[in-house]
Design a protein around this nucleic acid. Structure first.
Lengths: 194, 194
DNA sequence: GTCTATAGATGGATAGAC
DNA sequence: GTCTATCCATCTATAGAC
């Protein structure tokens, strides 16, 4: 079920504006102007302003869940699964930088029901990453540290790439992912603490 | 130069509201109502709404700089300095949880000059942490990984405690700081990568 | 599906009395 | 220092023509 042309434009323009100015600071007039239409026309495609934000957050949360399932298919060892999952997370947050930043900072714009729906998708994703780390601890590959705290730490750290990564900067996204996986695996792996 | 009673109330109430609802979603009327005064009275103490936010962000940024200088006095070894700096960072973000969250998410509310002033204070703090890691790398205590990326990663990871820490939860702030320092030091230290 | 026009509410901020 | 009263800009959303 793909969007119409106009709806696609509104969506793309909103991603751009929410990224640049923030959700609350962006008005329906701003979106209409940048889309080349009148603001009343927006309400034909979206029922209200929040609906535009919700559409972005839902799609992003859905897509990252799909991407991790896909990239882990057929991979079995805990260490390899974690390496791949981290790389996928870093790549996603670089490739979808604007949406990732919006997802990270504009949850406040949602009313209760929509908020719950996004948090549910996010919890599902977090659970997938936690399960990999748990598998590694259970198998004795990773040392027995606090699962919840460490998975929060790892996810947060990798999510933050969307805040500072510069596509024309010193490092490629492959290099960044490599630095992260090395650091995290070294911190997690067993039997090498001095 | 301490604040008057009313100004203190406005400040405390604003920290609470910005934390709960966000800066843009909080109106001057909200602040006045929660402070028990009329909204016009706020403009006797602050020149505008942004000024209230700027006051909070400036104080928080100043205080964390002061706290790291204080806790590192007289400590020389890179490893010990990093342990103490991480603990201080975690404690600050737990003890000043609301202000830390506002600092992390409401920079958008500032106009250019104020924004630059806060970023400057923040850069000074980041530089202090980076210098410790650099010292450890130069001394051969930490392995020679990418300094910029790792210091971003470490700061972000430790900053995130303010997002999930629950004072009445499973772990004390001392325990959380310990888990973080162990994980980070293990990831950084040299010669133990399998 | 897109437009013009406007309703209706709320926002930040100021004037001036006390 | 705090109040009442008010200005004026702007915002989301709707009505109804085409």
């Amino acid at each position: 079920m793909s969007k119409s042309n106009t709806k696609n434009t509104i969506n793309a323009v909103s991603i751009d504006l929410f990224y640049k100015k923030g959700y609350f600071a962006t008005s329906i007039s701003d979106i209409a102007r940048a889309s080349g239409i009148q603001k009343a026309s927006i309400y034909y495609h979206y029922s209200n302003k929040e609906d535009i934000l919700y559409d972005i957050l839902k799609t992003t949360a859905y897509d990252i869940n799909e991407s991790i399932d896909k990239c882990l298919t057929g991979v079995n060892s805990a260490e390899e699964r974690l390496r791949i999952a981290i790389q996928n997370h870093v790549f996603f947050h670089i490739d979808r930088q604007k949406e990732a930043i919006i997802s990270d900072s504009e949850l406040r714009g949602l009313s209760v029901d929509n908020y719950k729906a996004i948090v549910k998708l996010r919890d599902e994703y977090d659970y997938k990453l936690q399960s990999i780390i748990k598998q590694g601890i259970d198998q004795g590959i990773f040392s027995n540290m606090d699962l919840k705290i460490l998975s929060y730490a790892i996810i947060t750290m990798c999510t933050a790439v969307c805040m500072w990564f510069n596509p024309s900067g010193r490092l490629s996204k492959e290099e960044v992912a490599q630095i992260y996986t090395d650091f995290i695996l070294k911190g997690l792996k067993r039997g090498n603490f001095p």
